[in-house]
Amino acid sequence: MKESGRKQGAASPCAACKLLRRRCAQDCVFAPYFPADEPQKFANVHKVFGASNVNKMLQELPVHQRGDAVSSIVYEANARVRDPVYGCVGAISSLQQQIDALQTQLALTQAEVVHLRQFIK
C-alpha cells in the first residue's frame, strides 16, 4: 500500500526530512513533492523560503493545488539562487527584451518583403 509517495513503514525519508534531519512521518506534507532522490530541489526551496513557511503554505492549500504550488515555489527558489536580486523577474525581463527585439526584427523583415515585392510585379 502506498501513501504520500512512500511505502508504508519505509525508513527512507523524503528530501525535506533528510535535509532537516527529522523522521519522515506517513502524513509528511513534503514527501509527495520532494522525493529523496532530488535533494537539491528542497535545499533551494528551504534556503529561499524556509521549511516552516513552505509547510504553512502547503497546509493552507487544498491537496489538488499543492503540486502546482510546489512547482511554482521550486521555480522561484531556483531563480532566486541563480539571481538573488531579481529572481523570476530577471528571467521575465530578459525574455521580454528578447520578444521586443524579435518583434522589431520581424517588422523590419516584413517591410523588406513588401519592398521587394514591388520589384517583382
Rank of each mutant, 00 (worst) to 15 (best):
S93H: 14
Q40G: 15
E76W: 10
Y75W: 08
T104N: 12
A51S: 04
K41S: 12
C88M: 07
K47E: 11
Y33N: 04
I120A: 08
P62I: 08
S93R: 13
N78A: 05
H64V: 15
V114N: 13
I92V: 11
E38W: 08
C88A: 07
I92H: 09
V45Y: 03
Q98H: 03
E3G: 15
D37M: 03
E112G: 10
C88E: 04
L58D: 00
Q59A: 15
Y86G: 06
Q103A: 07
Q8W: 11
R82W: 09
V63F: 15
G50L: 05
K41V: 11
I120V: 12
A31P: 02
R6E: 06
C17S: 08
H115V: 11
P39Y: 04
N53L: 08
Q26D: 07
H46M: 12
H115G: 11
R22Y: 01
E3H: 15
D100W: 05
E38K: 14
K18T: 13
F119V: 10
P13M: 03
R23H: 06
L20D: 12
A10H: 10
K56T: 14
N44V: 03
C24R: 10
K18E: 14
A111M: 04
P62V: 11
R80C: 04
A77N: 01
A77S: 03
G90F: 02
N55I: 04
N78D: 07
K41E: 13
I99P: 07
Y33S: 08
Q96P: 01
K7I: 12
T109W: 12
G9P: 01
N78R: 05
G90K: 01
A25G: 12
R22K: 03
A91W: 05
